[in-house]
Write a protein that binds this DNA or RNA. Structure first.
Lengths: 199, 199
DNA sequence: ACTGTTACCGCACAGTGTGTTCAGTAACAT
DNA sequence: ATGTTACTGAACACACTGTGCGGTAACAGT
């Protein structure tokens, strides 16, 4: 059933290139990296690089995709842990970030990259949107436009996550999650109203 | 007293280059712009560009500096308006953003740029830090590390500002400011404690 | 209006990175 | 052992960078 037919050489090459990119990002930042740098560090032929990826961005995207696939299961299991007050799978995200902090830091800390936005943050935003839509369907009214709430919630998560990584994760994921919820809950609750009328 | 000795040709050239950069950013994003593009659009000789700026980043920095100088007075006057609950000069910032939205959007919306961080956001963070330090000096205790609060506050401002620009400013600055304060106040107040003891 | 100064232009230059092609070689699966 | 497939290395045209320099045009001050 499993597709184990992937040539070892392919696996090796892709891995080498992906690792090279990450380590280079952590050293000098995404912008300043050239394809030349990457293939030098990975010790891979020039033509080989272009046989696998279109360019630097494409390689980055593949890295991101990999991470995203791996994150999936973690999110699913998160609903067991903090299902109660979960507006976002924040605890799961903090935990996974700690596990894969090299990868995350290369994508977040060392300056944001276009593609990261499109995959990670848009996913978070979707989560938040679903939360508020579900809330609305139960008759609640929002004193602030939904899209702003959604952006704010996902954005706050991003802010704390970024800070955490930039500061070498000085607190455990659980504590970060507590603080995140404490900060965000207050503001969110203030704009949720039971009644029909809005000011 | 005034230094009006600046050669007209210099003013003209610098202005042309700065405008060219902004319009190009709004079209295709900072990363994809070359010095060649800039001088073509500005209709300025190659050597002239390098007579004024070191490279693309340097030109961007000059643009940013210009904006920052102009923002100064606005911030000062903001303390008249919302001095009461001002943790940040948020209203002034929303207003100035609306006035200079082309400039701001080119620097924020179309993907963050390294230098922007260092000037605008670090300034905001400093404001926030000053606020909490002043709060601490009056005997209040914080249930969340100060640096996290600072980051969160400045970050939230950034989030909303970015959203506002990306969505073509659908609400007036005053309303954005109200919503910002509503969202942020709740969370912040929840972590400020009067007493001496912390959990 | 005249004059010295200074900014601009245009072109040429070496240097570096890009993305493609292709024949030769080595590692792979079976 | 054999056919297949991925990698290598070198060459290629192209694009952009940053610098240098003589000629030209716009400037400020008298």
């Amino acid at each position: 059933m499993e597709n184990k037919k992937v040539d070892r050489r392919i696996q090796r090459t892709r891995q080498l290139l992906q690792d090279a990119l990450i380590s280079l990002i952590l050293e000098k930042g995404y912008d300043k990296i050239t394809v030349q740098n990457i293939i030098d560090r990975a010790n891979v032929g020039r033509s080989t690089f272009y046989a696998h990826f279109l360019d630097k961005d494409d390689l980055m995207a593949s890295n991101l995709e990999k991470l995203h696939e791996e994150l999936g299961p973690h999110l699913a299991s998160s609903y067991d842990d903090d299902s109660e007050r979960a507006m976002l799978p924040s605890l799961a995200l903090f935990r996974h970030t700690q596990e894969q902090h090299h990868m995350y830091k290369s994508m977040i800390g060392g300056r944001g990259i276009e593609i990261v936005h499109q995959v990670i943050w848009d996913g978070l935003t979707a989560h938040a949107r679903a939360h508020f839509e579900q809330l609305e369907s139960t008759g609640k009214r929002l004193a602030v436009p939904k899209e702003i709430l959604v952006t704010y919630l996902a954005g706050s998560m991003r802010i704390l996550l970024t800070w955490w990584l930039d500061n070498d994760m000085p607190y455990p994921p659980e504590q970060m999650n507590e603080m995140f919820l404490k900060l965000v809950d207050g503001g969110i609750e203030g704009v949720i109203q039971d009644g029909q009328e809005i000011s």
